[in-house]
């Protein structure tokens, strides 16, 4: 499964990758971007199975990226999980409204992340 991890913090990207690799390193392969614009370009270039995206990022933030993607028919069914520090309920509602399939609040819990990926992949 090819996963695109978008976060402006390299360490955060590493943490997310590691928590998945710990579980099953053979299953996942990763692409990385540190802002929304780069993420968009990668998506245009390569096939991605799952998008893990942060909210607060320079250039194009995660929320706007998701909104942009969902406008385009080819990304309508792309599974997206937002991983962000934003914990307020109104933020989650906003993100789900924008089109994310699930939402995870940092600091990331390995088990929760795995469970959410499983759920999102099965729904879509």
């Amino acid at each position: 499964m090819k996963i695109l991890v978008v976060d402006d913090s390299r360490i955060m990207r590493t943490i997310v990758k590691n928590s998945l690799l710990q579980n099953n390193s053979a299953l996942y392969s990763f692409l990385e971007a540190d802002n929304g614009v780069d993420a968009f370009n990668i998506l245009e270039r390569e096939h991605v199975d799952l998008l893990l995206v942060d909210w607060n990022m320079p250039h194009l933030n995660g929320l706007d990226l998701v909104k942009e993607l969902r406008i385009l028919p080819k990304y309508k069914n792309l599974p997206i999980i937002m991983i962000t520090s934003e914990a307020a309920k109104y933020n989650v509602i906003e993100a789900v409204k924008a089109g994310v399939n699930d939402y995870l609040v940092k600091p990331v819990d390995d088990k929760k992340l795995l469970l959410k990926i499983e759920q999102v992949m099965s729904i879509n």
Binding site: K89, Y90, V92, I93, V96, K97, N101, V120, I123
Partner: peptide, 25 residues
């Protein structure tokens, strides 16, 4: 407003139900 937004999310089948129940405003 939050309730309105929230209830509308229910009709999107791809949204995880567990997530929905956790953000009930």
């Amino acid at each position: 407003i939050a309730t309105k937004d929230y209830l509308e999310l229910f009709f999107n089948k791809t949204v995880n139900p567990a997530l929905l129940s956790s953000i009930n405003p």
